[in-house]
C-alpha cells in the first residue's frame, strides 16, 4: 500500500497542520515506511477477536451532581494568547 501526496494533503487538512510540497513529500516517505511495517498486522486473522479499548480492570465510576468548580475566569483566560478580560478571541469566523 502506498500513501500518496493527495492523501497526505487530506490528512494534513483534517489534522489542521499545514504542509507545503516539500514537507508533504518527506511525510509521504516516512509514513510509507511506517505503514510497511504496520502492515505486518495483516498476517493475523482477527475476525473473532473482541477489540480491547482499555486495559483498566475496573468499571466506570460515576460522580455526584455537585458544582465544585467555582468561577475560574481569570485563571482560564490568563494563558490565552489574545488579550481579553471576558472571552477567548479567534480570527473572525464567517459561517
Amino acid at each position: 500500500m502506498s500513501i500518496d501526496l493527495k492523501t497526505i494533503k487530506h490528512i494534513s487538512k483534517l489534522s489542521r497542520i499545514s504542509v507545503d510540497e516539500k514537507k508533504a513529500e518527506k511525510l509521504a516517505g516516512d509514513l510509507n515506511s511506517i505503514f510497511d511495517f504496520i502492515e505486518k498486522l495483516n498476517e493475523l486473522k482477527t475476525d473473532n477477536v473482541q477489540p480491547l479499548t482499555s486495559v483498566a480492570e475496573t468499571t466506570l465510576k460515576l460522580r455526584s451532581d455537585e458544582v465544585k468548580s467555582k468561577n475560574l475566569r481569570d485563571q482560564v483566560i490568563k494563558n490565552s494568547p489574545k488579550e481579553n478580560e471576558d472571552y477567548f478571541v479567534v480570527p473572525k469566523v464567517i459561517e
Binding site: S12, R16, I17, S18, V76, N79, S80, P81, K82, F88, V90, P91, K92, V93, I94
Partner: peptide, 17 residues
Amino acid sequence: VKYGFRAEGENLIDMYE
C-alpha cells in the same frame, strides 16, 4: 486558542494550521 503558542493567520483555519 486557549493557551500556548499561536501563529497569526488570515482566518481561523489558517491560524490553526
